[in-house]
Design a protein around this nucleic acid. Structure first.
Lengths: 351, 351
DNA sequence: TTCAGCAATGTCGACGTCGTCAATTGAAAT
DNA sequence: ATTTCAATTGACGACGTCGACATTGCTGAA
């Protein structure tokens, strides 16, 4: 592989001068610059970042650690956000996943340290409480889509599940719905409780009696291998004589099953039943017909901004205790309508 | 950061001896080993891979380049396969994506070269023809889920779309279906034509008249921003007086829309209409009720085996021209049934 | 006893880059 | 003409690691 010395020889200057040109340092003659650049182009020289890093103690590499989230479709957007930030800021992204296995996690941290990466974005499933096994010598770390267990301190960036769910519920109430069904996420996930709490709070604030809320558990069991009751519960709920006029689902995949249940009962969305989801997972939310009203989780931004927070931290400018919460916007599509009203409304989302 | 020399000082040996212990070289006293390991543990020493790599000219890093595939849910499994291979073989994965933008692609290759990575896995959307901009000095490269344009030579690993589609069609014929609908993928995707060709070939081999096949275009337009006709076409096809008894969809997301169309017409799956997809994209194929009969694309294995091929190449053992084709198995679930028969059958897939 | 032979350990330099500091040049100031 | 100073360039070493080779010390054979 061609090195700075090869370039120096060809250009007839010292290696240090080549270094100056490569790094855009001042006090180099235009003439010299040209000679050097010519040689660089000729030889196809590209600086060796490893060599650079052993001198500078900075690698410009950031690592992403994912737990089982990597098996979900969500993770992709977060990672893409990080990548795009990295690309725009001259960093490179090292990727590793642990499948939730502590042994593998330890290895990943070791590997990252061995690479002397500048920092780590720890991306966890949904919104779970998490403690990175950073070990003795620690790398600057930001938790993405999760936050640390009590007693541990890490900066984090998380979606505002509560706010999103609250706004979604208000949306339904504004549409005149008074009898509302709710299918819960796996309670193991932090987001699950926040979403439900917000739903209940908003319903109460909207003057809806608890007796008019029908709440069912959609899935339970270990994350990633849960038992799924959604279809059954949706069927059941929608078969009630006084069935809800609107059905809130813990996420979009649950909403899919709710659609299927509704349709197979001969109900039409949104004419007979309003169905809404959560996440705005496009494959589902745009794949459903009519398209799904849901809440957009800012996955891409979690990644991008998380990377940005990490960068601040690496440069000593960030706060060790920052907890940044990103807004979740309601994306109103055609699956929600005024109670007893089939007319599609204007979208209020950002798309 | 603690270096090999710090360890040497604490252990009271030379740095070279520490190096020997770290790399498991022979001819070191058990006593010495212990002293050194103690010092290592004390100081939390972790070898600096950058320094190692400038001596050895090997980084044990492999890069993944994705084009817009990273916006699809599929890419995740491929990347996971690569990661798992890397984790199991002491490699690290550098990740970059181009969004299909040639400028970004050029930058990505530059960055990868600057890191002196050992090789590149070029992962392309679906199954598209692709030319990596490797540039003058080339890094060993394997194309994953895609293959090179005519005139270019790169090893590649691809799914057997044709075989999978053929088997799926045979499956339907074996179930007694004689009048079959087909909704095509975006023709821009290589997989699209292979799947359609296989369908036609298998239908002919099964003695089905062309007049009994109803073929519709499901989407067209630039990859990633296509116009979607699936729902409309499915509605239309299923409203025909002599409607097909089985409907083959270009992929699982299309099958989702076919379900919705069927259900909204009051048809039941699979009693009234058999629907099958392609990809086995779990969010959809398992999220649909009844669960979807489809063809499993071996995304994870594409990643794992692709990484393996690349490794061979890096070590000079691989072939520059290998084109490995991975089988796609039919996963029979409950959405396909004998014509006019509602009884669910035994799954023949591997799950 | 002497020495070959081998195991155990150390010294030194090189990898590619860049920071430090010195050397050289030319022009402006005296 | 001499001095001063800034601009330009180069020589050298250090970063962390390990390969090549040297040194030390011990064993066993002659």
């Amino acid at each position: 592989m061609v090195s700075i010395k090869d370039v120096a020889r060809v250009a007839g200057v010292s290696d240090k001068t080549v270094s100056r040109v490569v790094n855009g340092e001042p006090n180099v003659t235009a003439d010299t610059i040209e000679k050097v650049q010519l040689a660089i182009a000729d030889l196809g020289y590209i600086p060796n970042l490893a060599a650079r890093s052993i001198r500078s103690n900075r690698t410009n590499i950031i690592g992403i650690i994912t737990d089982f989230i990597s098996t979900t479709p969500y993770s992709g957007d977060i990672v893409r956000g990080v990548q795009d930030w990295a690309g725009a800021n001259g960093r490179t992204v090292l990727l590793a996943n642990t499948d939730g296995d502590p042994t593998r996690e330890t290895n990943v941290w070791r590997t990252f340290k061995a690479h002397r990466i500048d920092g780590v974005l720890y991306v966890a499933m949904y919104h779970r409480v998490v403690v990175p096994a950073a070990g003795e010598v620690s790398i600057p770390t930001v938790l993405v889509n999760s936050h640390p267990e009590d007693g541990y301190v890490y900066p984090s960036i998380e979606p505002d599940d509560f706010g999103g769910s609250y706004a979604l519920t208000e949306h339904l109430i504004a549409l005149g719905h008074r009898r509302i069904g709710y299918i819960r996420l796996n309670p193991l996930l932090l987001g699950a409780n926040q979403r439900l709490d917000a739903f209940l709070t908003a319903a109460q604030a909207g003057g809806i009696a608890e007796s008019d809320l029908v709440i069912r558990l959609g899935m339970e069991g270990p994350v990633g291998r849960e038992t799924n009751y959604v279809y059954r519960e949706a069927l059941d709920m929608l078969s009630m004589p006084d069935r809800p006029t609107a059905l809130v689902c813990g996420n979009d995949e649950m909403a899919l099953q709710a659609y299927l249940a509704a349709l197979s009962l001969g109900l039409r969305v949104p004419d007979d039943i309003t169905i809404v989801g959560f996440d705005d997972f496009r494959t589902v939310s745009l794949g459903l017909k009519p398209e799904l009203t849901t809440v957009a989780l800012p996955y891409y931004d979690l990644g991008w901004q998380g990377a940005n927070m990490l960068d601040q931290l690496v440069h000593g400018k960030g706060s060790e205790t920052e907890r940044r919460i990103l807004k979740c916007l309601v994306v109103a599509r055609q699956s929600s309508a005024r109670r007893g009203d089939a007319t599609p409304r204007q979208a209020i989302g950002s798309f």
